[in-house]
Structure formats: C-alpha cells, structure tokens
C-alpha cells in the first residue's frame, strides 16, 4: 500500500483535488481509501462516501490536531493494510501554520490556493516548506499574472518541490497529479520506526493543560512574551 499525506489551509481545495485525482486513477486497478483528520467538525467523509471511496475520520476535539494525527496515523495505516487498499490518502487541515506532521519517506503534498494572498507562502511553515509536491488551486478565478507571481513565491520557499496548478472544480491537472501520487516502488508495510520530518512546537504551557484564567500568575511552563518595543518577541 502507498501512503500519501495531504495537508493545506482550511478550504484550500484538498477534498476537491483528492476526489478528482482518485477519479483520474480509475481503470488503473488501484484500490484507494481516505482518512480525514480535522479539529471539531467535518463532513468531508460524506463526500468521499458518496464517491464510493472507503473513508475514516478522526476529530481531535480539544487536542492539537497535528499531535492527534501522529498519535493515530499508525493505527489507520494498519487498518488500510488489513483492508488491502493500494493507496491510502490522509487529508488534514493545517491549522496553525507552525507544524505539519509529514513523515520522512512518505509522500507529502501541500494544497494551497491562489486566493490566499501572495504573502501566504512566507507565512506557512513546514507544511509548505517541506512538502514534496505543492498543488496550487483556484487558478481559474485569478489572472495569469497573479498565478505566476504566486507560484514564484511558492517556489522561493520550497524550490525542490514539484509545483502543479490544479483546478479542483474541473479536475484539470488531477491526472498529472495522480501520476505523482502512486508508485509501485513506494509500498509500505508499517509505519514503525519512521520519523516526522520536523519536530512539533515545544508546547505545554498552563493553557495547554486546561487553564482558562488570564493573568501572569496563572502562566506556567513554556511561555513567551510579546515585546512591544521592537515588535519581535522573546522568551521569558
């Protein structure tokens, strides 16, 4: 089974692209499945089910969704192997821009849309910067010039990635994407011993642990203070 992790900001077009890409694979004898990770709510699983694609979903609730992802992906992979799927796609929303649970040796795709503004590539962390494939969507509603400028900004922050323009509505570019997502040489039999590409934030302040009161005396652990003089921040 191949595993592909697909992430990207909310509403960037992940589900649309995955659906069209899987549709572009029909006839190649590849049995796909999807697992959707989100925070509080998603009805993406319905969309996959409607398309006849087996799907599981996991909601992280009050936990950090990326931590939740890493703690559960192995179980999901075991499920996929048991069911003998050929391709397991994980869809997860990148919520804080800071981390992204890409795994070394597992194909990582970031979906980002043209409407998000040309400074967005700069703002998104490892989710964009350490992806292998970057899919840029919604090119149909901006100008050719904006597409080119946006793509060049993406290229500057991740020059080694393959960058593809894909239309999530019509599926233009999805066939091409599908050729990059499945490879007989990339089968896995377990995630045991694999590693994240990038460490998650050094979290754990009192608020992570359920504190709700505001004020200096309630703040413990890893706390960082804003510096109003220079605009930058520094650790206490």
């Amino acid at each position: 089974m191949n595993l592909v992790t697909i992430s990207g900001p909310p509403s960037s077009g992940k589900t649309s692209v995955i659906l069209k890409t899987i549709a572009a694979m029909t006839g190649r004898g590849i049995k796909p499945a999807v697992v959707k990770f989100d925070c509080l709510y998603t009805d993406d699983d319905e969309l996959y089910r409607k398309a006849g694609i087996p799907v599981k979903k996991g909601l992280s609730g009050s936990l950090c969704p990326d931590h939740y992802f890493v703690s559960n992906i192995e179980t999901v992979v075991d499920w996929g192997l048991e069911q003998e799927y050929d391709l397991l796609v994980s869809e997860s929303a990148g919520l804080c821009n800071r981390c992204s649970p890409y795994i070394k040796g597992i194909r990582a795709v970031c979906v980002i849309d043209n409407l998000s503004g040309i400074n967005t590539p700069k703002k998104i962390g490892p989710m964009l910067k350490s992806a292998d494939v970057i899919v840029i969507t919604k090119g149909d509603i901006v100008s050719q010039a904006e597409r080119e400028v946006f793509a060049s900004r993406v290229q500057a922050v991740n020059p080694r990635a393959v960058i593809l323009h894909v239309n999530g509505l019509t599926g233009q570019g999805c066939y091409e994407l599908s050729t990059l997502l499945y490879d007989d040489a990339h089968h896995i039999t377990s995630l045991k011993g694999m590693e994240l590409r990038f460490s998650m934030p050094s979290a754990l302040c009192s608020y992570c642990l359920g504190e709700t009161r505001i004020g200096e005396s309630y703040q413990m652990g890893n706390v960082r203070k804003i510096d109003l003089h220079t605009g930058a921040d520094h650790e206490r």
Partner: peptide
Amino acid sequence: VAQLSQNMNFVM
C-alpha cells in the same frame, strides 16, 4: 502554455 482564463478577477 499560458492561459488567459475567462472569468478574471484580481484579488490583490
């Protein structure tokens, strides 16, 4: 190929 799409909005 450069593509001049039909519905063209500027967002910037």
